[in-house]
C-alpha cells in the first residue's frame, strides 16, 4: 500500500450538488513510478477525473486517496501542501503571461520558499532539460505552442514531484512537438520514478501496449488489458 499513489474506492464524481454524475463507483489504484493513460470519448469525464486527483473537484461518494490523503475530507491547508508535491500540465499551458519563462518554471520553487539564487540555478537546469535555455527571459506569449508546453513540463518537474498530472498535454500541438512532450514525460517517469497520469483522447501508437491504460465509459473507469 505504501507504493500506491492514487487509490479510488467506489469513487463517484458529480456536478450540480450531486445531481449530474460523471464518474460512478470507480475502483482503481495507481502505483508509484507508473505511467498511466486515461482515455475516453469527449465529455466522458476524463478531465473531471484528473481534476479530482488534485482536489479541484471533491468526491461526492466513496473515497479518493492521493499520496495517502483522503481528498473527500481534506482541509484546504493540507490540499495546498499536497499540491506542492504535484506537477500539473494543461492543454492550454496555463502559464502566467506577465512573468518570464524562467519565472514561470520556478513557480513551484517560489511557493516552496526557495531562495532567489536557488530558483535561478534550478530555472537554468530545467530550461536546459527542456531545451529552452535561450528563452529564459522571454515571455510565454512570444513562444510557440510546443515551446509553451515544454515550459509547462519544466514547471511541472521543478520540484521533483511525486505525481505529474497531464490533461491533454499534446492536444494543441503538431506531431513533432507532441513527440518531444511525450519523451519528456516518459523520461520523468523512468528517471525520477515520478508517477505520471495522462488524460488524452488518443494514445500515441508507440506507447499503446507499453503502459497501463484506463478507459472511461458510461461513467465507469475500466482498465484495458
Amino acid at each position: 500500500m505504501a507504493n500506491v499513489v492514487i487509490q479510488a474506492s467506489d469513487l463517484t464524481l458529480a456536478y450540480n450538488n450531486g445531481k449530474n454524475e460523471i464518474i460512478k463507483n470507480a475502483n482503481f489504484s495507481i502505483k508509484k513510478g507508473e505511467f498511466v493513460f486515461i482515455t475516453g470519448p469527449s465529455g466522458s469525464g476524463k478531465s473531471t477525473l484528473l481534476k479530482s486527483f488534485y482536489g479541484h473537484i471533491k468526491p461526492t461518494h466513496g473515497s479518493l486517496m492521493v499520496g495517502g490523503l483522503d481528498l473527500a475530507k481534506i482541509s484546504n491547508s493540507k490540499l495546498q501542501e499536497l499540491r506542492t508535491h504535484m506537477g500539473i500540465v494543461f492543454q492550454d499551458y496555463k502559464l502566467v503571461n506577465e512573468w518570464t519563462v524562467a519565472k514561470n518554471v520556478v513557480l513551484p520553487l517560489m511557493i516552496a520558499g526557495y531562495s532567489i539564487d536557488m530558483q535561478h540555478t534550478q530555472a537554468q537546469r530545467l530550461l536546459r532539460h527542456v531545451k529552452l535555455s535561450e528563452y529564459a527571459n522571454m515571455y510565454p506569449y512570444e513562444l510557440s505552442g510546443g515551446e509553451q508546453q515544454r515550459v509547462g513540463i519544466a514547471r511541472a518537474l521543478a520540484k521533483n514531484p511525486m505525481l505529474i498530472l497531464a490533461d491533454e498535454p499534446t492536444g494543441n500541438l503538431d506531431e513533432y512537438s507532441s513527440n518531444v512532450i511525450w519523451d519528456l514525460m516518459e523520461n520523468a517517469c523512468q528517471q525520477l520514478e515520478t508517477t505520471v497520469v495522462v488524460v488524452t483522447h488518443r494514445i500515441p501508437t508507440v506507447f499503446s501496449l507499453q503502459y497501463r491504460h484506463f478507459i472511461i465509459e458510461n461513467k465507469g473507469v475500466y482498465e484495458v488489458h
Binding site: 495546498q80 499540491r83 504535484m86 513557480l107 513551484p108 517560489m110 511557493i111
Partner: peptide, 16 residues
C-alpha cells in the same frame, strides 16, 4: 485572476 488561479493550483497560500 489567471495568475492567482495558476498559483492556487500549484498550492500557493493565499498571502503569496
Amino acid at each position: 485572476r489567471e495568475r492567482m488561479q495558476v498559483m492556487e493550483i500549484f498550492g500557493a497560500p493565499i498571502m503569496l
